[in-house]
Design a protein around this nucleic acid. Structure first.
Lengths: 152, 152
DNA sequence: GATTAAAACTTTAAACTTGAAATAAATAAT
DNA sequence: ATTATTTATTTCAAGTTTAAAGTTTTAATC
């Protein structure tokens, strides 16, 4: 790229590359989950969030942590519940609140899927070493789009 | 992060941060387009691709370049066409092929939206300088998810 | 030239997603 | 105590997205 290329143009190109990388990777993961594990990306994301959290989550916590609308969380949980992978429990302290967690079957399924998922992500970044990964994460962390909630 | 943290774990965390950044940014852009320009992200993406390409595109070129299914391209173009922003033309050489391009009105609308979009992206990366942006782009380019088609 | 295979696009069903409206319950203000 | 406001969730309509099936046209093979 030319040295005279403006800062603004560099930013736009960086954004486009970022977007293309995530789309391509998500497409790959979607196909992988569909073929080998008979599930979808949104279902895996929800299950991962529930499992990562250890304790049952409120619906609102779930949707907020996944950056999706509350209505979206409802429908995905609806389907997981119908399949016996997640279960809702009315909260004792506040009758508006619904708490969600994986069932034993859900946990069992997730363990398998998570291991497979990790292997796929390993492939994705196989050409970057420790330092490069840290540098990349640091760089991503210094953008405005990267808020401070739930940083891992 | 601990020095003993495994490579695999670093990769997973990098992926999660990448995903969160793009989701957050897309959510922001979606809201921005909705409020200030009465349009959506998919519509903007399609229009940007058509305009960036200069010449009319085949439906298949469009869906491939945007990394979406062919059926998806059909419905988005359907709506843009209904609103008079894009138009389809049957190709002369091959009667299976449909070529798409923006209308004058579509181009005019896009100019405005593209400028606004660039300003938003500028904000997103405002804390990174030339060298850092190049380093970030380079790093992203060295992942398996970043294929070689249509690299900008 | 007829048949078969491949390609381009559209249609369809199901899942996903959002934003807004509706419901229900808790909290605050009077 | 009553009323108003806020909060948590679900429901709904419209749009997005995919994968698969269907249509039309072209190319290949015989």
């Amino acid at each position: 790229m030319s040295d005279k290329t403006s800062l603004s143009q560099r930013r736009l190109r960086t954004w486009i590359r970022l977007l293309r990388l995530t789309r391509r990777s998500e497409n790959h993961l979607r196909e992988f989950f569909r073929v080998h594990h008979n599930t979808t990306l949104p279902r895996f994301d929800v299950m991962a969030q529930l499992e990562r959290n250890k304790k049952p989550m409120k619906m609102s916590e779930l949707s907020k942590s996944l950056l999706v609308s509350n209505g979206n969380a409802t429908t995905v949980i609806d389907r997981l519940e119908k399949d016996g992978l997640a279960k809702r429990t009315p909260a004792k302290s506040d009758r508006r609140v619904v708490e969600v967690q994986l069932t034993d079957e859900g946990r069992a399924q997730f363990e398998i899927q998570a291991a497979a998922h990790e292997a796929e992500i390993d492939k994705l970044f196989s050409d970057l070493d420790h330092e490069e990964l840290d540098a990349l994460r640091d760089m991503l962390g210094r953008t405005k789009g990267d808020g401070d909630d739930d940083v891992d």
